[in-house]
């Protein structure tokens, strides 16, 4: 969203139309431009004893990934607080091999 500048001066963000004047930055999606986001999510690991050795292995080989594009007008998430809007979402289970070198 356009992050409004407080009273058109300095480094503070304004809240409310009465003190918003100007923009510090815009964190939203600009028209016609491709915006990329990348997330690297490490699988949780665990240490286990195997053949007398302590090894580290994934706690699970399948990871349920959910990506949700929210429009959150203001404040903490909650239907009665700010009426957030789920714009789009994606879900996939990402699996990694259980054997290999």
């Amino acid at each position: 969203m356009p992050v409004p500048q407080q009273l058109g001066r300095g480094d503070r963000m304004g809240r409310g139309p009465y003190e918003k004047s100007g923009i510090i930055e815009d964190t939203g999606l600009p028209p016609g431009k491709t915006v990329n986001e990348r997330f690297d999510i490490f699988y949780p690991l665990e240490e286990v004893e195997q053949n007398g050795k302590t090894i580290t292995r994934p706690q699970a080989y399948d990871l349920d990934i959910e990506v949700k594009l929210w429009y959150v007008p203001f404040g903490p998430l909650g239907p009665k607080i700010n009426d957030p809007f789920l714009w789009d979402e994606f879900a996939k289970t990402v699996s990694i091999s259980k054997t290999g070198k």
């Binding site: 939203g28 028209p31 016609g32 997330f39 999510i41 699988y43 990934i65």
Partner: peptide, 22 residues
């Protein structure tokens, strides 16, 4: 060795203005 998932998201705003506004 650390297994990981990579998530790549591509978004293009097809509207005639920034989203969101306000």
């Amino acid at each position: 060795i650390r297994p990981k998932a990579v998530v790549k998201v591509e978004m293009i705003n097809r509207a005639g203005h920034s989203i969101p506004d306000g």
